[in-house]
Design a protein around this nucleic acid. Structure first.
Length: 537
DNA sequence: GGGTTTATAT
């Protein structure tokens, strides 16, 4: 009996395949790869495809390694093509998915795309907004008799909507015999993504079926457009809510700077016994950073410790940012050093932390470590570095960094980078050099840059240059108050009171007013807000 | 042999 049973069951997969599927790092996959090459197992498409899938889809997520395995496989099957096309469709380079689809059609004559291939390649078309290619593939779908497949149709709907062809999508949706809730969601999600909330709401009201995702789309549409009352109304109307619903609302409040409400919502969320996920925690931490709510920030950190949540990527960045914005640079360093995984943003957050605390040298040191560890700095890195130099008065270093930015790292300086340099030169009173730099900028007549230079003129009492720049600023934007305010301040500092009165009169005539500055501080776990010239609220 | 559509984010 047992012999018959054994002969009927499929043979168990070789143990190496189970090993491949459990691998948690590239080096383990490399070991499996080496073993397969040594034993000849790699020649079997099934084994090779399992290895490739592990590289392309698991948490390891190494698409380029998956592609290498694909290239080394003598006769890849459709499954392998599909896995790779899917991987590229959701990567930063979806055009490779299209290229692979063409390769499948042209190079491998004995292979045919199947229904899975179409869903993946259409997804790539949607990401790239290539409706022309999408239509051609739609033609292939019809020709191959796959128009009945609801997965393919839903991806087609999404593709047409994403490319702005809402009428085509609508036409298709109305004629789909087997449409389901995902079909409606596929179109709704695009209205929401593009910020067409009114159209989204009309469409949403018309939907004959709705699920939790539909409600979440509508909710996040309002929340992302800053329409918090509408978002709240949708949220309150929902009979079932999940962590995505809570996150969407919380993120909406956080993006509008209503941080106290963020923390209140989080309390409600806990009372509703919905378990926060990493997104929730990241948003909470950024809210804490925004109002300097150290106690709540520490609470989130402790919550992570208690629940064994790994401090990596997003969360490590959010924690470093929170601690440094709340004034605890030592805690920020501690979190940074012990983070299990860092990405470019985590390094940037640490550099920014040192920068705002005035530790220019440390910021530069972290940058060297970042490069030594093989991370590629981005434009944000250089804003942080240059502003670190500016705050710490590191003139020589800033020139070197600014020079290397393009020549070594290939990053073109943006307005922010020039802004940091102008600020630094201004602090040193090198107004002539600063002016020359501004004149050399490829971006012309940027208000904020001239304003920065103007304030340097004020600090160093350079009236002529200040007058020249003020004139320029008022010419560029007569409603801009910085020009008026700074110029009147300069006149005041020189005791030229009649000029001051004159400028203030002009400001009143044009109804330009100066907005008061403000600040927030946490005392005993409560956040207080101040406006310039006011007492404690 | 196995897998698919819509998805909040520093």
């Amino acid at each position: 009996m047992s012999a018959i049973f054994t002969s009927l069951s499929p043979p168990p997969p070789p143990p190496i395949i189970s090993f491949t599927e459990m691998a948690t790092s590239i080096s383990e996959l490399h070991q499996a790869h080496a073993y397969m090459l040594k034993t000849g197992l790699f020649q079997q498409p099934f084994a090779a495809s399992r290895l490739m899938t592990a590289a392309a889809t698991s948490s390891i997520d190494s698409l380029s390694y998956a592609h290498t395995i694909f290239t080394q496989t003598p006769q890849p099957n459709t499954y392998m093509y599909n896995t790779l096309i899917r991987g590229y469709a959701t990567s930063p380079t979806p055009n490779v998915a299209l290229f692979l689809f063409l390769k499948l059609l042209c190079d491998d004559q004995d292979l045919l795309p199947d229904k899975y291939t179409y869903t993946f390649v259409l997804k790539a078309c949607a990401c790239l907004c290539r409706v022309k290619h999408g239509k051609q593939i739609h033609g292939c779908v019809i020709k191959n008799g796959l128009s009945w497949d609801v997965y393919i149709c839903n991806t087609l709907l999404h593709m047409y909507a994403k490319c702005g062809c809402f009428e085509v999508a609508r036409h298709m949706l109305d004629r789909m015999p087997n449409r389901d809730v995902v079909s409606w969601n596929a179109v709704l999600s695009v209205y929401v993504e593009m910020g067409f909330v009114d159209l989204a709401f009309d469409f949403f009201s018309e939907m004959p079926v709705k699920n939790l995702e539909s409600w979440n789309f509508m909710l996040s549409g309002y929340a992302n457009s800053g329409l918090l009352d509408e978002a709240r109304r949708v949220f309150d109307e929902m009979s079932v809510k999940d962590v995505v619903s809570w996150n969407a609302l919380i993120t909406g409040y956080a993006n509008s700077g209503r941080y106290n409400e963020v923390l209140e919502l989080f309390d409600d969320m806990q009372r509703a016994r919905v378990k926060p996920n990493n997104h929730t925690l990241v948003t909470l931490l950024s809210a804490c950073a925004g109002i300097g709510a150290l106690e709540q920030g520490k609470w989130v950190h402790a919550y992570m410790d208690r629940n064994g949540i790994e401090v990596n990527g997003f969360l490590a960045t959010a924690l470093v940012d929170m601690y440094s914005k709340c004034g605890c640079i030592e805690k920020a360093v501690e979190v940074f050093d012990s983070a299990s995984r860092k990405d470019v943003s985590t390094w940037n957050a640490m550099i920014t932390g040192f920068s705002v605390h005035g530790f220019g040298e440390q910021a530069l040191k972290v940058f060297s470590e970042m490069v030594e560890n093989g991370f590629k700095p981005n434009d944000v890195t250089f804003v942080s570095l240059l502003s670190a130099c500016s705050r710490a008065g590191l003139l020589f270093e800033s020139h070197e960094i600014f020079g290397n930015m393009f020549s070594i790292y290939g990053i073109k300086p943006k307005i922010e980078h020039y802004g940091c340099l102008v600020d630094l030169l201004g602090r040193f009173g090198l107004l002539k050099e600063a002016e020359e730099l501004v004149e050399k900028m490829p971006q012309k007549d940027v208000l904020i840059i001239w304003e920065s230079l103007l304030s340097a003129c004020r600090n160093h009492g350079n009236v002529e240059l200040a007058e020249h720049i003020s004139g320029k600023l008022l010419e560029l934007n007569p409603q801009d108050n910085a020009g008026y305010v700074q110029l009147s301040n300069i006149h005041a500092s020189k005791g030229r009171w009649s000029d001051v009165v004159d400028i203030r009169r002009k400001m009143r005539e044009k109804l330009v007013s100066k907005k008061p500055g403000g600040s927030v501080i946490e005392v005993d776990g409560v956040v207080h807000e101040f406006l310039a010239g006011e007492g404690m609220i």
